[in-house]
């Protein structure tokens, strides 16, 4: 069979499961109440401060959380690059949240960090009478997203970091480089392209945050993300056209984020930093 023929099933799948629904959504978002095509839905969303605010709310969760997740994953992966004691156990524990699913993780966070959770009870028991509120607000969503996206980001970066030839590090050390110089002059330039990709993926996942924002956040206020806005239009107001418009705006925001990250990555490549790396690109 020829290559195009082999690609056919995948192409059909993409067409049916992605291209068609996506195009359908875009067309739907352009449908005005009277039936014609217009940008009315977009204008209605963007000009309503209560609605447009969701873009800012989502970004204020997604961007800091992405930075935090990638940074933490990078630090842990870098520390574990040459293997460590109980590595398998630690990796399993770190990766477990992927297998549990969003809702279970959110439940766990409520059970542990919630007002009557173990953490607060422990704090009360040691005499702290006014413990900080960690769920059903911004902090709750940040914790939930970190727990969900850290494993994925960690595994990806661990692959990058441990794929770098250990002899490079040895060579740098013998030439006089301390731990920081090794990171800055040898390891970081080689890991940076991978970090950019991890950053892009975590950002996109974070920007679409929905279940966590509802379950451990404050869906009517501080964590009313753009996905919640779309959901409410679709299923509370039964306004599919408006909901589609919101979804398209969300997609556009994610694309802008991706674009920025890829431009930065390209610029690193242009200076030679990312021309050759850990084998993966």
């Amino acid at each position: 069979m020829s290559v195009p023929a082999l690609m056919l099933p995948a192409a059909i799948y993409l067409l049916v499961m992605f291209v068609y629904p996506f195009a359908y959504g875009v067309v739907l978002s352009l449908q005005a109440k009277d039936g014609g095509l217009s940008l009315a839905n977009y204008l209605a969303f963007l000009l309503d401060p209560w609605q447009a605010r969701t873009i800012w709310v989502t970004a204020s969760i997604a961007v800091p959380n992405t930075v935090l997740t990638v940074l933490l994953a990078l630090v842990v992966a870098y520390r574990m690059r040459r293997g460590m004691w109980m590595e398998r156990t630690i990796t399993t524990a770190l990766v477990l949240p992927i297998a549990l699913g969003t809702v279970l993780v959110a439940e766990g966070i409520n059970g542990f960090y919630g007002p009557k959770g173990w953490l607060n009870q422990a704090l009360l028991a040691v005499g702290i009478t006014d413990p900080p509120r960690l769920t059903h607000n911004y902090t709750g969503v940040m914790i939930a997203l970190l727990v969900q996206h850290f494993p994925f980001c960690f595994l990806m970066l661990l692959g990058y970091v441990s794929g770098i030839d250990p002899a490079l590090e040895a060579a740098a050390r013998v030439l006089g480089a301390g731990p920081w110089a090794i990171f800055r002059r040898v390891m970081w330039p080689l890991i940076a392209p991978g970090v950019a990709i991890a950053f892009a993926l975590v950002f996109v996942m974070n920007f679409g945050v929905f279940p966590s924002a509802v379950l451990v956040g404050q869906p009517a206020g501080a964590t009313r993300t753009i996905a919640i806005a779309a959901y409410q239009q679709a299923f509370e107001h039964s306004d599919m056209a408006m909901a589609s418009a919101i979804a398209v705006v969300m997609g556009a925001c994610q694309l802008v984020g991706l674009g920025v990250i890829l431009v930065i990555r390209r610029r690193m490549a242009a200076t030679g930093v990312a021309t050759m790396g850990a084998g993966k690109r």
Binding site: D165, A167, L168, A170, A171, A172, R173, V174, L175, G176, A177, G178, R185, V186, P189, L190, G272, V273, A274, T275, M276, G277
Partner: peptide, 22 residues
């Protein structure tokens, strides 16, 4: 002394050149 302070030179079997540097 750690390796970076011994003042030795070392040549590796797989060259171990820094791929991102000229």
């Amino acid at each position: 002394l750690p390796p970076e302070r011994r003042g030795f030179g070392m040549v590796f079997q797989n060259y171990a050149l820094f791929p991102h540097l000229t």
